[in-house]
Design a protein around this nucleic acid. Sequence first.
DNA 1: ACTCGCTTGGT
DNA 2: CCAAGCGAG
Length: 475
Amino acid sequence: MTAILWFRRDLRLDDNPALAAALASGSPVLPVYIHAPHEEAPWAPGAASRWWLHRSLQSLDRSLQERGTRLWITRGDSLAELRRIVAATGAAEVHWNRLYDPRIRERDAAIKQALRADGLRCESHNASLLFEPWEILTAQGQPYRVFSAFWRNAARRLPDIRPTATAQDIQWASIESPGLAIEDLALCPRIDWDAGLQASWTPGEQAALNMATRFLDARLERYGEDRDRPDVPGTSRLSPHLHFGEIGPRRLLELTRARAADPTEDPAEPFVREVGWREFAHHLLYHFPQTPTEPLNPRFADFPWKQDGTDTRLEAWHQGRTGIPMVDAGLRELWHTGWMHNRARMLVASFLTKNLLLPWQKGADWFWDTLVDADLASNTLGWQWTAGCGADAAPYFRVFNPVLQGQRFDPDGAYVKHWCPELARLPLKYLHQPWTAPTAVLTAAVVTLGTDYPHPMVDLATSRKLALAAWETLK
DNA sequence: ACTCGCTTGGT
DNA sequence: CCAAGCGAG
């Protein structure tokens, strides 16, 4: 007998409930990965995510090799591939950890039903959330739409949350056909644009644990203050590791507890609260599965977005050539590293949806393709929050001012100078608003607007007024 | 990734 | 009365 362990976005051996359950069956465990991006359409992994996935699979495969086995890799339709592997091995059970993207949920439900009809034992497990989306409900049994109420309820249950112990002495099934090589999945970019990703990240379970440990030891204490500063390494940068399940939130909570007895109190509270936002995002995606494309607030169905037929404005935003330094810095950080600081994400999103009046879905699409941590739940929450149409959203009329935000959160200009080096010689006074600099100052700084750095593509004050006017039409 | 005040439903 | 949850800003 064999128990199949179907890896998906839970690319770790620690704190892995599906592995624990497969092991508990007493049968040898066969680790499998099935490449089936067509089953996730239209939210198949983007280019940056594929880059990460390639390396994370390599890392998992290496860990398995150290333990005397390998990852059995195939591609095709997941159900058909699982049945093929069952036929080849005589496996009697299949275990996996749950995902919550709407398309994947439908697929997994159908697979579970089909495999059980085949006479197999088939179980899914929770590896990627502290709480199942259906466990946290209002007193009326409804899903939450407001974070503070959601988290007040959920946080009370934190003391019961524990990771699954790392499995020891696993008996692996012997693999006769090793299947495909990871390279056969063609996840890597064909043209060579990934040097910045390579320099910024180390995918894999061991790297995830190292990142978490280093963050908690060195930065947890200051997280509450530093997390808003894109010029300071104050955040955990764990998002891609969490997305691919190289570390789970339960292990992360346990590691946090080891440094702060009560994770709902300082200094851990602000960080654990962010993990709570990740939970809230999954809660919303589960209960409102249409939100990756549709505004949660139906009032926004008729919002007069400016659909730019030529896409030249969207193109300038993609490339970080808007002429607004904080916005360009964020977008260039994204393009170069596959990641953007959360403060910058809010700024570039506010600029796209309010100053340019382009639909938030266009921004979500770009993030989906370029972020190494692209996650349907978090991306949807973030964009709808900024656009003002989502749960617990910022009011539409709150338009971030990227100049004031720059002065407040990048006070020395280090973030802008790093990502927009052509502005580095400008005095701080003009760094966040080069269009206001006198000609002599620009000359001295060797900046010619329109040549070295763009003129601002919109006037911030005027475009803000246009956004407010567009909002008024919905009333 | 907030805050406040109102409504509602339960004691 | 209180407190949960939401919607407006």
